[in-house]
Amino acid sequence: MSEAYITRIAKFLPNESVSNDEMEEYLGFINGKPSKSKAIVLRNNGIKARYYALRKDGTLTHTNAEMAAEAVKGLFAKNPAEIEEMDLLSCATSSPDQLMPSHGSMVHGYLPESGPVEVVSPSGVCCAGMHAFKYAYMLVKLGEKEKAVACASERLSTVLRASQFEEEVQQLLKLEQNPYLSFEKDFLRWMLSDGAGAFLVEPNPNSEGISLKIDWIEGCSYANEEEACMYMGADKTADGSLKSYKDYPAEEINDHSVFSIKQDVKLLGEKIVKLGFAKFLEIMNKKGMSMDDVTYFLPHLSSYFFESKIETFFKENGIDVPKHKWYTNLVTKGNVGAASIYMMLEEVFNSGALKKGEKILLAVPESSRFSYMFCMLTVV
């Protein structure tokens, strides 16, 4: 089999950085009042800035597919004509602009200069970006593709706006109940961000500068054991199952904000680190590796709250991962879902700090129904 290398990484961030104080100027005030949970959530998640594909007046500036296409174009910025050589476009998101056509097809539609190309669209949430990457990796390894692009993008700001919850608030007012959003809906409004990232995967490393050899990519789902923890386009019933938006009368979809993104915070705290990192230890043992072999550890975090949880898990298992090995950009970019790991690796790859022989570990937990992806890279 061929080897497979990440030879270039690019990202695209829409508009200007949005500070914590500005968030409700973009997303709006629920029932005209500041959020009760915003300060608590921001204090715990540690995020100071994020990006939105919209303006303060609500005007949308980019679709999800447009942002993904801009990230892909960034891979070929030095020689735009080279995009004609792209032979795979593997695109992931948890927030496509439409149910059909596929997200990947829509991204390809913004790349007319690329010509006809194989397109695939892995679905999911945070792990979807890694699934898109693994598909590109496998096809290059098999010798079927020579210039494969994997990309991941999110545009969730539009479902976080106050207008999305107005019908539910009005229903609560009619019932004389407190017209504030439940915490499971308000929680994620202060964590999510928009943007896109892309990898170029090739069978040979760069002749100049560095590349990242893809040693392995491993994943695992616990959906057979655990109920949904984060969901959208559905509501959770008393027995823990999900009721699809397709099964609601049209008027109830708005009344219950069914298309809002929701998080079972209690289930998240109990399970997200314990399940995934136990599996990670199994994978490392199988590979005959330890954290001592890792130079840089890049965990996708939805909140800095979980950094200490991972650290505690490592220490309880006799593993010491000093802070200088950790890297995350959550504080400045927010949680960009499937695209977060692309943006983190882009900053490390283009930092000028990497040295040949160093190893980079990527860890991507997904709370939706507890899935995990891990990847080891070697700087060459």
Score class of each variant (00 low, 15 high):
6 I>D: 02
7 T>K: 12
11 K>I: 14
15 N>C: 08
19 S>Q: 06
20 N>P: 04
24 E>K: 10
27 L>M: 12
28 G>Q: 03
29 F>T: 10
32 G>Y: 00
36 K>V: 08
41 V>C: 03
42 L>W: 06
51 Y>D: 08
53 A>S: 11
62 H>V: 03
62 H>R: 05
63 T>D: 08
64 N>D: 08
71 A>P: 04
82 E>M: 10
85 E>I: 01
88 L>A: 06
90 S>E: 01
94 S>P: 07
94 S>G: 15
97 D>R: 10
111 L>C: 07
111 L>M: 02
113 E>P: 07
116 P>I: 01
117 V>I: 14
120 V>L: 13
120 V>E: 07
127 C>M: 14
132 A>R: 09
135 Y>F: 14
135 Y>K: 11
137 Y>A: 06
139 L>V: 10
141 K>E: 09
147 K>W: 02
147 K>R: 15
153 S>W: 03
159 V>S: 13
160 L>Q: 10
162 A>R: 00
162 A>P: 08
165 F>I: 05
165 F>G: 03
173 L>M: 15
178 N>I: 13
180 Y>W: 13
181 L>V: 06
184 E>N: 14
186 D>T: 04
193 S>E: 06
199 F>L: 03
206 N>M: 01
207 S>G: 11
208 E>K: 12
208 E>F: 09
209 G>H: 10
215 D>N: 15
217 I>N: 11
237 T>E: 14
238 A>N: 11
243 K>N: 09
246 K>C: 04
247 D>W: 05
253 I>P: 04
253 I>M: 03
254 N>H: 10
256 H>C: 13
268 L>I: 01
269 G>M: 12
269 G>V: 05
271 K>G: 09
273 V>N: 03
275 L>F: 14
276 G>H: 08
278 A>R: 14
279 K>N: 14
282 E>F: 01
283 I>A: 04
288 G>E: 09
288 G>K: 09
289 M>I: 13
289 M>Y: 11
290 S>R: 08
295 T>P: 02
296 Y>F: 15
298 L>E: 00
300 H>W: 08
304 Y>T: 12
306 F>H: 14
312 T>L: 08
313 F>L: 09
325 K>A: 07
339 A>E: 05
339 A>P: 00
343 M>P: 11
353 A>I: 13
356 K>A: 15
359 K>M: 12
363 A>T: 15
365 P>C: 11
367 S>I: 12
369 R>K: 15
369 R>G: 07
371 S>F: 03
374 F>M: 09
375 C>H: 00
